[in-house]
Simulated assay, not measured.
Amino acid sequence: MTTAVLLLSCPDDQGIVAAVSDFIARHDGNIVHADQHVDPVGVGAGPVFFQRIEFVLDGFGLARDEIAPAFAPIAERFGMEVALRFSDHRIRTALLASKQPHCLADLLVRWSSGELPCDVSVVVANHPDHAALCAGLGVPFVHLPVDERGQAVQEQQVLDTLAEHDTELVVMARYMRVLSPTAIAAYPNRIINIHHSFLPAFIGANPYRQAHDRGVKLIGATAHYATDDLDEGPIIDQATTRVSHRDDVARLTRAGRDLETTVLARAVRAHLEHRVLVYGHKTVVF
């Protein structure tokens, strides 16, 4: 069953739900999922309305390229920002990795088993460690080390590789390089990063050593969209687990890696299923 998804945001007002539903009904559409949220604070003058509405394309009275123009009067009436997505479009996804394998391997296994509805077009890494893993799954692997020419040259090679593979979504699967504003601007709200803490906490190297030294009782992981502000982008998913004084650094690391793989996979799936709306520094995840 192929569906269309409308992701909508606008100032809250009367009649929005009725107008959107009526538009779909007038064109013989069958709504299979609808969810909405009103942020009473918003980011500007007043409350903001958000909606995700999904309807079946089979039997719908408009062709795909006719839906957005036909919906435009409603969008203009309510001052909406509108994104139209289709469930049968498999987003071309690139995975960036460094040495740690857990997030990359987890995503590749989920993708190869059909759990993630995307096309993994390429894996790009600044270390060669994952070549065999990718070859076994038939995924192109590109090794782009940071050499004497510096990080700027390597990052441009990464961007060129992403463009060559028609990349739509970038996932930093524990990619231990900081992306420049140029790279971020090339994929706005389309670069997902996994951070090894329940943000904000324990920034930098050896986070589980820092956590152990502080005697924490809770560790976590955070998946967010990458922005120019390091590890401050809109959060998509988070999770925590309890730990104790009995947990050494190795145990904390294992527990943290389990969280990282799960949280990153959930965030990527939410994006692929068109369930995320970004506004300001926040997200609504339906």
Rank of each mutant, 00 (worst) to 15 (best):
Val243Ile: 06
Ser113Asn: 04
Asp129Ser: 14
Val278Gly: 08
Val43Glu: 08
Leu199Val: 08
Asn189Cys: 04
Thr227Trp: 12
Val142Ser: 05
Glu260Asp: 06
Ser98Thr: 07
Asp35Glu: 15
Val82His: 05
Gly61Ser: 06
Pro181Ala: 02
Leu179Tyr: 05
Arg92Gln: 13
Leu104Asp: 14
Leu159Phe: 06
Ile194Gly: 10
Ile236Lys: 12
Val249Leu: 09
Ala125Asn: 02
Ala75Gln: 09
Gly233Val: 11
Pro145Ser: 10
His224Glu: 13
Val82Gly: 07
Ala4Leu: 07
Arg174Leu: 09
Leu264Arg: 10
Ala223Leu: 08
His27Thr: 12
Ala265Tyr: 08
Val171Asn: 10
Gln36Ile: 06
Gln238Val: 04
Gln151Arg: 12
Asp247Leu: 08
Ala45Val: 05
Gln51Tyr: 13
Glu115Phe: 00
Glu232Asn: 14
Ile31Ser: 14
Arg275Pro: 04
Ile235Asp: 14
Pro73Ile: 02
Ala45Ile: 04
Ala211Pro: 02
Ala94Arg: 03
Ala135His: 06
Ser9Asp: 14
Glu155Cys: 09
Ile203Met: 15
Asp228Lys: 12
Asp58Arg: 11
Ile191Arg: 03
Phe71Pro: 05
Leu230Glu: 05
Gly280Leu: 02
Met176Pro: 08
Ala83Leu: 13
Met80Val: 10
Val278Leu: 05
Ala185Ser: 10
Val56Pro: 11
Glu168His: 07
Leu107Ala: 05
Phe286Cys: 10
Gln210Tyr: 02
Ala270Val: 10
Pro69Lys: 04
Ile67Phe: 03
Asp247Gly: 09
Thr262Cys: 05
Glu273Lys: 06
Phe78Ala: 06
Thr241Gly: 00
Met1Trp: 13
Gln210Arg: 01
Glu232Arg: 15
Leu104Lys: 14
Thr261Asp: 06
Ala250Gly: 05
Glu66His: 07
Leu6Thr: 04
Ala226Cys: 11
Leu8Gln: 10
Gly42Asn: 01
Tyr279Met: 03
Asn126Glu: 08
Gly42Cys: 01
Thr3Ala: 15
Thr182Gly: 08
His89Pro: 02
